[in-house]
């Protein structure tokens, strides 16, 4: 069987796609690529459907050997890439042949690299998605991150015209990694639990990403937020950060203890008993996904219309890439 030979798995490399819908109600998060823009752009560059399964690598990429002719593309974080020892460019369509080895150096900007291969990663579909959810070990490649020596199946190469080798995404359409990543946030949910001063402080503080930052969520540090004093409602539990257990949106922010906000991401718990104070909009989950331990983020309050406009803007950028590649 043709596929990918995993020489080294990297730090945390998993198979991901657009995510798994319809199982939130049993407590299963959607999973899926954290930076959906970069992931989808990688698929477009190799002529795949936008939602084909690809690899997401965190901090340190894998080393992979190909066993047949394919197109590949590397997007997301800034990282030097080589093909059989020769430098190749990210955000471009790269032809590979049997025996070629793709390697990554350390990332120089951002946090997550996406690798798409024409035909997609051919792991079985599980509950409507090929995304990996490692907590219960389901989906993706054996429900886990890649390990040295794995052999990944690839899908049939797509028929029809693929982008020509060397096709690329314009610099202006690629994400940038500013010193402070601004995360547009719809404030609300249980934000009434914070005092007015705490809510202002939440939006004015520049927060630092701690070492607890992964696909489950990002824990931040940089200030203390006070809760409104109250007699706790029945069933909520005694801590002022507690509410009666409720559902957590993906991207929602909670502040257990008042001093470490946590932004929940695609592999997070689906609910629990901490007050949520707002939700990072879907387009800016792409941005937080490209921050790493020690990086800085801030929250910018937006309303639902601005959130939807940002989502449309991301869609239009992907459409522009798709059109550029057809020219």
């Amino acid at each position: 069987m043709n596929g990918l030979i995993v020489h080294t798995g990297g730090l945390y490399t998993t198979v991901q796609d657009t995510g798994r819908d319809g199982y939130y109600e049993i407590g299963m998060p959607p999973s899926g690529a954290l930076d959906q823009f970069s992931y989808r752009a990688a698929n477009l560059l190799v002529g795949n459907p936008e939602g084909a399964a690809a690899l997401e690598a965190t901090y340190i990429g894998p080393e992979l050997e190909f066993t047949d002719d394919r197109l590949v593309a590397v997007t997301g974080a800034d990282v030097p890439v080589t093909l059989s020892g020769e430098p190749v460019k990210p955000w471009e369509t790269i032809p590979v042949k049997a025996g070629d080895v793709l390697s990554f150096a350390m990332i120089t900007g951002g946090a997550r690299v996406y690798l798409a291969v024409s035909g997609g990663i051919g792991v079985p579909d599980y509950l409507g998605s090929r995304s990996t959810y490692t907590l219960t070990g389901l989906g993706g490649f054996e429900g886990r991150k890649l390990a040295d020596g794995d052999r990944l199946p690839l899908g049939e190469r797509p028929v029809g015209t693929a982008p020509a080798p060397g096709s690329g995404v314009s610099e202006s359409l690629r994400p940038s990694f500013p010193e402070v990543a601004e995360l547009r946030t719809v404030v609300g949910l249980c934000s009434y639990r914070l005092t007015d001063a705490a809510l202002r402080s939440f939006l004015e503080t520049t927060w630092k990403v701690t070492k607890d930052a992964d696909r489950v969520g990002y824990r931040l540090r940089g200030g203390t937020l006070d809760f409104v004093e109250r007699e706790q409602p029945f069933g909520a539990g005694s801590d002022p950060a507690n509410v009666v257990d409720l559902g957590y949106p993906v991207g929602s922010i909670q502040v257990p203890g008042g001093d470490e906000p946590i932004v929940l991401l695609n592999d997070a718990v689906t609910g629990g008993g901490y007050a949520t104070i707002g939700t990072v909009i879907s387009a800016d989950r792409d941005r937080i996904a490209q921050t790493k331990t020690g990086d800085q983020v801030s929250f910018v309050s937006v309303d639902i219309d601005q959130a939807l406009a940002a989502r449309r803007e991301r869609r239009e950028r992907l459409d522009r890439i798709s059109n550029e590649l057809k020219e």
């Binding site: 946030t185 719809v186 609300g188 949910l189 249980c190 409602p233 029945f234 069933g235 909520a236 509410v243 009666v244 409720l246 559902g247 949106p249 993906v250 991207g251 929602s252 949520t276 939700t279 990072v280 909009i281 879907s282 387009a283 639902i304 959130a307 939807l308 940002a310 989502r311």
Partner: peptide, 18 residues
């Protein structure tokens, strides 16, 4: 009624459990 970003709607019936 609260928007949980652009992909969720959260509806709190009551703050207390019953």
């Amino acid at each position: 009624y609260e928007y949980g970003g652009d992909e969720f709607v959260f509806v709190e019936i009551d703050q207390a459990m019953s």
